[in-house]
Computed example of a mutant assay.
Amino acid sequence: MFKFIGVIAGFLLFGFFGSILGYIVGAIIDRARALGAGGMNPLTNALRQGVFLETVFLLMGKLAKADGQISQIEIDHVEQFIQKLGMTTDHRTQAIRWFNKGADPAFEIEPTCKRFMSICGQTRDLKQVLLVYLIVIALADGHFHPVEEALLTEVARYLGYDQAAFKQLMDMVLNQSRFGSQQTNPAEALDDAYKALGVTKENTDQEIKRAYRKLMSQYHPDKLMGQGMPEDMIAVATEQAKEIQLAYDLIKKNRNI
């Protein structure tokens, strides 16, 4: 709106070149107003993407070394993760550098978590997706060690999660991962499906629908990218959304929703 006002005012005061100047000034004002109303500054978005990736790989390294040694399974998982992201050779080198830095016994997580919060902390979904990734990574070797749980609890605290909220999130992710595997017992599969959505059999159909829609909204690609999620990582979030969809479909079938 202001760029058009600027064109008219500039032309009336200074002629043709004044209209050009007025357009530029007006466009700047329009952009500033859009950002103030919640628009996304591309520079801020790029910064969030960089910080998100760096935080993921630093904390992946810390988690892998949390039990004292990095297993071959964990190394393979990191490689698969990098391949899934479709990283270039240079980006892969940087990611491994971050991973090794995080695995250094001298590495402290507090500065990394605080930097993440200062850049990405305004968006709840990015915080939750980061924690979900780290929980999945901790499960890569098939075991969830107490030292890994303690480290994740500490990370969650820096991200603003109290113990109860993190425990609920962790239970949901554990059951989403379990639900994605082959189930032989229908009753166990249904129990896992409820837990994957963070609900119970006692919840109403409407409450279950709300929980499902909330989770799917948190993993929506456009929403995550708008908040600063690196585009390459959207595929990983989409996989988690598929597990949630499978869980909800089973519940719907069982309850005739």
Rank of each mutant, 00 (worst) to 15 (best):
M1C: 06
K3T: 01
I5L: 15
A9C: 11
G10C: 05
F11Y: 15
F11M: 10
F14T: 02
G15M: 06
I20S: 01
I28V: 13
R31C: 00
R31K: 13
A32R: 11
R33L: 13
A34S: 12
A34I: 10
A37W: 05
A37G: 14
M40E: 11
M40N: 10
T55E: 11
M60A: 03
M60G: 06
A64F: 09
Q69G: 09
Q69E: 15
I73S: 11
D76T: 13
V78T: 14
V78K: 09
I82S: 06
Q83V: 04
L85N: 03
G86D: 07
T88I: 03
F107T: 07
E108C: 07
E110L: 09
K114A: 12
F116L: 08
C120M: 07
Q122G: 14
R124C: 02
L126M: 03
V129M: 13
L131Q: 06
V132K: 08
Y133I: 07
A138T: 03
A140T: 08
D141L: 04
E149N: 13
E154C: 02
L159T: 05
Q168V: 14
D171Y: 11
L174W: 07
N175Q: 12
R178K: 13
G180P: 01
Q182W: 10
Q183K: 11
D192V: 02
D192A: 15
A193T: 08
A196Y: 05
G198Q: 00
V199A: 07
Q206R: 15
K209A: 10
R213M: 12
M216G: 01
Y219C: 00
H220N: 14
M229A: 06
P230W: 03
A235L: 03
A235K: 08
A237N: 10
T238S: 12
Q240K: 03
K252A: 13
K253H: 08
N254G: 00
N256Q: 14
